[in-house]
């Protein structure tokens, strides 16, 4: 006895309508592979290049009522970004991180489309000029890559250095934005 797609969709919609969902997620296709995206009532909460096990991460972070539901706004803005038609994201964010991470990510959000900055410079802007290494950790744990553009942060020499999704994706995003790469 299999639940039909229609009945399934009705249930999911009813669950959302009744406010019973802690966090919802979807899988979005992109030129850099499948993206796992998740949102709460407050806003976009996660983007991950690695969908496996992310439901558990969501349950631990936001509560066990995790349900897959279409995230049309997120999908649309990402599609536009990857098509080169969007330079900034208008999505509200639900960022639940420690204060230092929040300060760094707030500065990160100000790095303009198509430009790069260094870990050290970002540390200085966040008020901790000697914390370049810690900034690297914040970038590595960025819960919402692409939208919070940690791909725009490079080493002092201009080398791409590292990226949670892999350097190939970092290069792809910077080229998409027309950034100058050394």
């Amino acid at each position: 006895m299999n639940v039909t797609l229609e009945l399934d969709a009705q249930f999911r919609a009813a669950a959302l309508r009744e406010g019973l969902v802690d966090v919802r997620y979807d899988i979005v296709d992109s030129p850099v592979g499948e993206l796992f995206v998740a949102a709460t009532d407050r806003g976009l909460a996660r983007i991950s290049y690695f969908p496996d096990g992310m439901e558990d991460v969501l349950a631990r972070s936001f509560g066990p009522r995790v349900l897959r539901l279409p995230l049309d706004d997120v999908r649309r803005e990402l599609d536009e970004y990857f098509a080169g038609k969007r330079r900034t994201f208008d999505l509200p964010l639900d960022l639940r991180v420690a204060p230092f991470h929040a300060a760094v990510l707030a500065e990160l959000a100000r790095v303009p489309y198509g430009e790069t900055d260094t870990y050290g410079a970002l540390a200085a802007k966040a008020g901790s000029p000697r914390a370049a290494r810690a900034v690297g950790t914040v970038m590595n744990r960025n819960p919402i890559p692409i939208v919070l553009p940690c791909h725009r942060i490079v080493g002092a020499s201009g080398a791409l250095t590292g990226y949670a999704g892999g350097l190939e994706i970092k290069r792809h995003l910077l080229q998409l934005e027309g950034a100058k790469l050394t």
Binding site: D22, E55, D56, L58, A59, F62, G63, P64, V66, L67
Partner: peptide, 10 residues
């Protein structure tokens, strides 16, 4: 959020 091994609802 502590959820003591409760699987994600999905």
């Amino acid at each position: 959020v502590v959820s003591q091994g409760i699987p994600p609802f999905e």
